[in-house]
Write a protein that binds this DNA or RNA. Structure first.
Length: 210
DNA sequence: TCAGGGTCCCAGCTCAGAAG
DNA sequence: CTTCTGAGCTGGGACCCTGA
C-alpha cells in the first residue's frame, strides 16, 4: 500500500521547483535559504519526511530480501517474516553447533568439515530404494565454483539429484547427494565416484585469480 | 566546544483490504 | 456494514557525527 499524499489537513507549501527536496545538503551551501522561521520549519519537515521515506525503503528492502531467501514462508507480513527469521537463525545455530561437536570428536575426524579435515568420498546404493537411488557423501575444501563443478560431474554421469545436504564451515564443505538415474547399476556408481573424485581433487585457486 | 545535519525510534493518525 | 489488521506518513525528540 503506497500513499503519496498527506493524510493531514494542513497543507505544506514548498518553494517553486522544489517539490521533492534533494538529499544532499545544498541548503547548507546557500543554494536555498528559507525566508522565515515558518518556511525553515516546513523545509525541515519535508527533509525529515524524505529521510524517513528512505529509511522505510531500506527497511522494506531488507524485508523483501528476507521474504526471498526464507524457505517455507507461509505468511508474508512483517511479523511473520521476523518470526520465521528468528526461527531459522536458531535452527542454523543449532545445526552449526552439532557439526562443530562432531568435528571435535576424535573417532570421527575423517568426517571433519572444519579446517584441517581430510577429504573423503563415498558412493553407495541405497538399500530398498526404488529407482536405483545412490547416496554420495564427500567433504573437501570449499571453493568458488564447487557447486557448478558438482553439477557438471552429475550431468556427465546423467545423474539427477533428488535431495542434497550441504554444510560449509570454516572453509570446508561437507556434502551428501541422493542421486537417481545413473546408468548401468554398479557401473553408474563407479562413474559417479570417479566424477566426484575429480571435483574433490581439483586444486583450490586463490579467490582473486578466479 | 558547539551548532547543524543526518539518522533512528516512537506515537498518533489515516487508509485499504480482509474477515466476521 | 463493522471491526480488525497491516502498512505508510508525519511530527517530535534523542542521539551521533562532523566541521568550524
Amino acid at each position: 500500500m503506497q500513499s503519496t499524499q498527506s493524510y493531514y489537513p494542513k497543507q505544506i507549501s514548498f518553494p517553486k521547483g522544489q517539490g521533492v527536496f534533494p538529499t544532499n545538503n545544498i541548503y547548507n551551501k546557500n543554494f536555498f535559504k528559507p525566508k522565515s522561521k515558518a518556511e525553515a520549519k516546513v523545509i525541515a519537515a519535508k527533509k525529515h519526511s524524505e529521510s524517513e521515506k528512505r529509511r522505510r525503503m531500506r527497511i522494506n528492502g531488507q524485508y523483501t530480501t528476507l521474504r526471498a531467501i526464507l524457505p517455507d514462508l507461509i505468511k508474508m507480513d512483517k511479523a511473520s517474516v521476523l518470526g520465521e527469521t528468528v526461527r531459522k537463525v536458531r535452527e542454523l545455530k543449532k545445526a552449526l553447533a552439532e557439526v562443530e561437536a562432531a568435528c571435535h570428536c576424535g573417532d570421527r575426524r575423517d568426517e571433519c568439515v572444519l579446517p584441517g579435515g581430510v577429504d573423503k568420498l563415498s558412493v553407495e546404493q541405497c538399500e530398498g530404494e526404488k529407482g536405483g537411488l545412490v547416496k554420495a557423501t564427500f567433504s573437501c575444501e570449499d571453493r568458488l565454483g564447487l557447486i557448478s563443478d558438482m553439477t557438471r560431474a552429475l550431468s556427465c554421469v546423467k545423474g539427477r539429484v533428488v535431495r542434497a545436504e550441504m554444510v560449509t564451515v570454516g572453509g570446508r564443505s561437507k556434502n551428501a547427494l541422493w542421486v537417481q538415474g545413473l546408468s548401468g547399476g554398479n557401473e553408474g556408481v563407479v562413474a559417479l565416484k570417479r566424477a566426484l573424485k575429480v571435483v574433490i581433487d581439483r586444486p583450490v585457486l586463490p579467490r582473486n585469480i578466479i
